[in-house]
Amino acid sequence: MSKPMTKTQLVAALAEELGADKKTAGAALEAVTAIITREVSAGGAVTLPGVGKIYCRERPARMVRNPQTGEQMPKDADKVVKMTIAKALKDSVNE
């Protein structure tokens, strides 16, 4: 398995794909990240066509176990960010 693409590599690839400079590509990436963060934090969802859907899901309060002591303790309800991968991306990986 190869290493994940770094932010610098992603910005460089985005700049090349857009035919723009790295500063513009970096600003575009930051803007997209800010929009996704703002929307998901507010309880909404963002669909990236061909990639997937990013959304926030609430988990109910539940009992958890401390693995060191085996003690059961309550855990408050919380929210987690989830992503559903688009079928097009899954299909392209399995070709």
Score class of each variant (00 low, 15 high):
V80H: 00
A25T: 04
V32I: 15
K7P: 03
T6Q: 08
R65Y: 09
P67W: 11
Y55F: 13
K82D: 00
K75C: 12
P49V: 13
T33K: 09
G70H: 07
G52I: 00
K3I: 09
A61L: 02
K90G: 05
G50T: 12
E17L: 07
L14S: 06
Q68K: 15
T24L: 06
A77R: 12
A20Y: 00
P60K: 14
S41D: 15
G70A: 14
P74N: 09
V32H: 02
M1Q: 10
N66S: 07
E17V: 09
G50V: 04
P67F: 11
G44I: 10
Q68A: 13
R59P: 08
A86T: 02
K3G: 12
A20M: 04
C56P: 03
C56S: 10
R59F: 05
I54K: 00
A27K: 14
I36V: 14
S2T: 09
E16L: 07
P4F: 10
K23G: 02
G50P: 04
G50M: 09
A28F: 07
E39Y: 08
S92E: 06
Q68H: 15
T8S: 11
L10C: 01
N66I: 02
I85V: 15
L29V: 12
N94E: 05
M5K: 04
E71I: 11
R38M: 05
A61P: 01
T47N: 08
G70R: 03
Q72D: 10
